[in-house]
Amino acid sequence: MSNGINFAFLDEYAKREIRRSVIKAICIPGYQVPYSSREMPMGRGFGTGGLQLTLALIGADDTLKVIDQGSDDSVNAVNLRKFIEMTCPGIDTTTHLQEATLIQSRHRIPEQALRADQILVLQVPYPDALVIVEPSEDKRKIMHGEADYSRLLVKLYEDIVKFDEITISHRYPTRINGHYIIDPSPIPRYDVPKLHNSEALILFGAGREKKIYAVPPHCLAEPLAFDDVPFRIEDFTDSHGERRACKLCASQTSFLDEFIDQQGERVYQCSDSDFCEQQQELAHG
């Protein structure tokens, strides 16, 4: 206890409800478990779903890392980290992936592989992949239950007819354990294969839409595709056919952000700042 605030801000009833929902989410991989999503001292849409999961999980011996778009220093990550530090006395925070036991992230799965003793919590704005084809939630719940995704496949097919490829850049629909299709949150396509056969448990929290879902460790996760139009990730090759490298660490394998520098030139650098810094440290001995 500090300042009269309960450890991890939420009252114990709220935590228990989230904990019960998390367990059902793991037992039914990919199913969106509804929960009450309490009022938080920040607006819904600022990561309250991920935050509530983190607060229901965290204990004094945890080490937390918070990421926003790959960076530990951007505003959403800083605010959430400060809030959790303030309400959870005794926990440690870190920017190094290897030190973290609990990782809350927005829009990225870390570049380096997660371990079995880590848990990844992703913030989710829109949890339901079917919302683009069916406005009624009652009907979507039946479609999910029956694993009826024909209309979603038609949508992808129409993309191919119009543009010769599937044009979804992020939030790529992914089938979990051969049944439910999830919206994996706004991670790039590059991160989608990391959901498959992950060592770590991955939890998804949508605060505004009041849903929790999970991809358990070592679970089948298949991005939706067709036999003759396979899933592909972002293409970082330049006009000479070479893979672009990060301008800071020279990595040719990482997911890159594109910038325009002061001279008006296009430059590329790692989206995951922790990974990039570790690569630079390695290069400089």
Binding site: E12, R16, I26, L57
Partner: peptide, 19 residues
């Protein structure tokens, strides 16, 4: 007590994550 329940939950969570 809350502190025990948090630690116990993480144990149960691990159990359900790895049947």
């Amino acid at each position: 007590q809350a502190e025990f329940q948090q630690a116990a939950f993480r144990c149960v969570l691990e159990a359900f994550s790895r049947p």
